[in-house]
Design a protein around this nucleic acid. Structure first.
Lengths: 351, 351
DNA sequence: CTGAAAGCGCTTACAG
DNA sequence: CTGAAAGCGCTTACAG
């Protein structure tokens, strides 16, 4: 049996194809009576409605928004912060009638979703603008919103006010009397180096913002923190190795670029018998759902992940409506003091 | 400036449109030299490659697979088990060159993603076959795989061997000497009723399988468990209310239909000063990542969520290749004993 | 209220 | 190795 299309139904009812099309897509363009007859015929013939692929071509609109996540979706989905972001975006887009397609990075089969999937726009989360997916999206001249990535001309950015929260975090440690402080970073290659001795250069504006926030109160207090970092964008073997080495001669407090990194430090510190927070204070970043559930609950810098998702969706929806590309105001961040921080103890620094 | 299409490039290079098409899609169909010239012209003109929407229509293939999640994606994404499933599916599909689109339930704007989004097939996770999304998918005659849902003729099912793990869980409690046991359920309306007094009917084959597993060892031991359940498919206010009422006169052990439900019981029991597991043993289901992190770590029934995702993807990929619709073998489940279960104490049942 | 015409941008056999 | 023809299934103005 041949496929049922508008034509099949048109012939069956004895009207033209566009009248059938109108029956589905523009009900006000034909009489109720005729429309009812057409719908009944469609039902009888097992027609499920206009073919979405054909409609997408004719209308120039697919109803689909792409989402490219750091690395592969596989990795990103192990991070509750990323998952929360996807959830918030999907929810906001759904309200506007759009569905979210997860764009995996190109595999070896030659498929490049960012280039090959039909979509109306895309949200790029925490990616370098040099990422091939980002490039492909740009070449297609699709509306794009960049989230927590390095700025790219013509692409609106949804960003955090990373500095404020980071500043509060560092100030908190200073207030507690810490002077031997380590900062655990991504996107910056540093192995147990004093901040004053290396260039604080990173391609990540997120990390740069946090660094600026952390350094301000420390510098004011005359503290030169130790830097532990990996050139990668996330926790990798190099970073964990360097964290281990740092713990050979532990600082009294650690500022980490994410809660996951903070927990990595916490676990390894505990494994060595260090008491948290008595012997080592730890502050994370994000307020990952897990932060409040670990023991001791993690002091961290909260960001509103739902607000971030909504802002990203709203910005893209604006672009889709033909509005100008404007980046929303950076979203606020705020220190949340829990139990992983305590006053520095008075033991001499390096006995 | 008009849009750049195959035609623009064809005219620019002085060849026909299909030769340009071949340059992109069938490189073996033209000389290397000509292909290079075409690709260069395309680059110059800012052509990003064949339009995916047009290609989808012409080829009859989109490269997109739909995923419909219990309720809205918004809810499902708060459940790590569902998230893990999505991750596994997305990963497996990516290897085959497919991207996953999250199909939200239809909103009030008239958009029904399951009906309106162009896709090649879909995976339906933990949904009633009466769900409108499921119906829409069926009407389109798309290849569908049903996961943890009620069976539907002609649709392959990816299911768990729920019975084996549940049986082990109940046997574990019997072995520990428990006799006053409660079962906390979804998809079955029960308020503190003895199992023997109500019909154990549920539309959920998942729940039915677990019930069968739990009841076998209990019946053999002459135990008539108390049933606490909600007609809904997940934890809702009605269920939590009934759990509270159950705890007014607590059993010595609880079997829950999910880890999330088990944690609900655990939290409420602790809030009342009940010690877990000394005064009340609790067993969950799923081995949610959180299960091992709570205190005390939850005894539960493990399922391999990655395997489930891979099985779902593999089954759909088979359908897409034109193979027959065959359901894979039910995936194994297995009791994991942790610290939320202990021997029944000897206090009289109802003092 | 209904329909003839043109078009969305590409691909699939097939012929040369 | 290259191209003329037909087609994928729908929608958008526009005319009547």
């Amino acid at each position: 049996m041949a496929r049922v299309t508008l034509k099949t139904i048109a012939e069956h009812v004895g009207v033209s194809r566009m009248t059938v099309s109108n029956a589905f897509s523009r009900p006000d363009q034909l009489s109720e009576d005729l429309r009812a007859r057409i719908l009944i015929a469609a039902e009888e013939l097992g027609y499920a409605g206009p073919d979405p692929a054909a409609r997408a071509l004719a209308r120039g609109r697919t109803g689909v928004i792409g989402m490219v996540l750091t690395n592969s979706a596989r990795d990103a989905f192990t991070d509750d912060v990323a998952v929360g972001f996807v959830r918030a975006v999907a929810g906001s887009l759904a309200d506007a009638g759009y569905s979210l397609v997860l764009l995996h990075s190109s595999g070896d089969d030659g498929v490049v979703p960012a280039r090959d999937i039909a979509m109306d726009g895309a949200i790029v989360y925490s990616c370098d603008p040099a990422t091939s997916a980002f490039t492909a999206l740009r070449e297609r001249r699709l509306p794009i919103v960049n989230v927590e990535g390095s700025p790219h001309p013509g692409v609106p950015d949804v960003a955090l006010d990373n500095t404020t929260g980071a500043r509060q975090a560092a100030q908190h440690l200073v207030d507690l009397g810490h002077t031997r402080i380590a900062i655990v970073l991504a996107a910056l290659d540093a192995d147990d180096a004093l901040a004053s001795t290396i260039p604080l250069e990173t391609p990540s504006t997120t990390i740069a913002g946090r660094m600026a926030g952390w350094m301000a109160p420390l510098e004011r207090a005359g503290i030169d923190p130790i830097l532990i970092g990996t050139p990668g964008l996330a926790i990798d073997d190099l970073l964990t190795e360097r964290i281990e080495r740092m713990l050979d001669d532990p600082p009294t407090a650690v500022l980490a670029f994410s809660d996951l990194a903070a927990l990595e430090v916490m676990e390894r510190a505990k494994a060595r018998g260090l008491r948290v927070p008595e012997q080592i204070s730890i502050i994370g970043f994000d307020d990952n759902p897990i932060a409040s559930r670990v023991s001791p609950p993690l002091t961290t810098v909260r960001q509103d992940i739902d607000a971030k998702g909504e802002a990203a969706a709203a910005t893209l929806l604006g672009l889709l409506r033909g509005e100008d590309a404007i980046s929303p105001h950076p979203l606020p961040t705020e220190l949340v003091v829990r139990a992983s921080t305590a006053p520095a103890d008075d033991r001499p620094a390096r006995p």
